[in-house]
Design a protein around this nucleic acid. Structure first.
Lengths: 238, 238
DNA sequence: GTCTATAGAGGGATAGAC
DNA sequence: GTCTATCCCTCTATAGAC
């Protein structure tokens, strides 16, 4: 490994990231990548060994800083608050910002990569599982502990669910999604700063919400005719 | 078109759905599909015209009932409440349930399809855009109007953002996600009824959250050293 | 480190018999 | 409606010259 990555390597990474995000990983060929990067076809295999090696490298380049940001933020908060609970707002903010910074970084990939991230679970699962078990699990767990402390009345199982919802809303919200445009809003999905401002109160309120009424009944079997109204959730104390 | 779809057609659809969800659409070959469906290779082109035709059909089969459920539910609520505002809980519930019913339907695809849905934005974008503009846009808009009426203090632009967050949390939460397992919880990601019970209070609280403080400053440029704490969100009234 | 040329595998689609 | 056989294409990866 050289001290400074060769320009060729960077060109390939950026071109790959862009094309992956635009049309998917599997459908993007090395020919497309090298041609857009104005680099020779064989360079990919020389620098990354294989297409899989390239995919790994694309993710690695962007996710490193996010993990670093998460880890640094949560440690700072832990030290700052000692044994007292960290406010939920602070926790959420410190979690959202490193991701938002990535999404906002137009020069180095930005929102393009967020879309890759959103689809990553399916297309680069191997890489994600490896990465998660080695790094993210620890970091996520510290955030979970902090939230457990901050919202003591919430059962820890519910907290797990809410963390998952949070991740879904976060990736969707920062991906500059097609979705928002289709909702026909006046909102500009590319405005990352606005996305952060909108995300934080939404997530904080969701996390602080009263725990679910587990006694309630949810009917999901489609026994009734399709025209029947979904009156199938009934409170236990009705 | 026959009154009852041929068994071959159904076999192909189910095999395709499964394989698409497991390994992605682009990487799944027609040979894999037809061999799993125990059907001849040429049958795909006979029944669906092309691989693209098959992809469309896979989505169509599952999404039809969801749209019908959404439309039926919102119309029932509109009639029921007349000119007065529908409670947010009712709106959310009536939106979540048709999707949950799909996710819970193990026999006819179930969660497998939810994963397809989650990745759909990237891999089947053409189909999604077509479908959205023709059907979903109208339905989503009625939900948006109902929420606007139910939460009059929320700026309509914020509502658009929150709808997007809602969709992200919903798909992530009902996909039986890998994520939840990695958070190392006691939660069972496959428990759709539980997911619904957890989703509703989370989403309702998020929607009802106070509007964002738009005056606050969000710093996303990474000027500072990486070790600096993210104290970059500052309230205007500090 | 970069290039050309090509091997070798696997893909989607179709023609034509049954 | 189903099947076989095959066409033609694009892909990844590599060997070997420079």
């Amino acid at each position: 490994m050289t001290t400074v990555s060769s320009p060729t390597k960077e060109r390939i990474l950026s071109a790959a990231e862009l094309l992956f995000a635009e049309t998917g990983i599997a459908t993007t060929s090395l020919r497309q990548i090298t041609s857009r990067a104005r680099v020779n076809l064989a360079a990919v295999n020389y620098h990354f060994g294989s297409k899989d090696g390239l995919i790994d490298a694309v993710y690695e380049r962007r996710l490193g800083p996010v993990t670093d940001g998460w880890l640094g933020n949560i440690e700072t908060l832990e030290k700052q608050y000692g044994d007292s609970a960290i406010p939920v707002e602070e926790i959420v903010e410190s979690f959202v910002l490193p991701v938002a910074r990535l999404a906002a970084d137009e020069v180095r990939g930005g929102r393009i990569f967020m879309r890759l991230l959103a689809q990553g679970y399916s297309e680069a699962r191997h890489y994600f599982e490896k990465l998660f078990s080695s790094q993210y699990q620890h970091v996520l767990d510290r955030y979970r502990q902090a939230l457990r402390h901050a919202i003591p009345d919430l059962p820890s199982e519910s907290l797990c669910w809410r963390l998952q919802f949070l991740l879904g809303a976060l990736t969707q919200g920062l991906s500059g999604g097609e979705l928002l445009r289709l909702i026909e809003g006046q909102a500009d999905p590319r405005d990352t700063k606005r996305a952060v401002k909108e995300l934080i109160p939404f997530l904080v309120a969701g996390l602080k919400a009263p725990p679910p009424q587990l006694e309630m009944t949810v009917e999901l079997e489609d026994g009734a005719s399709p025209s029947t109204m979904d009156s199938s959730v009934r409170k236990a104390s009705a």
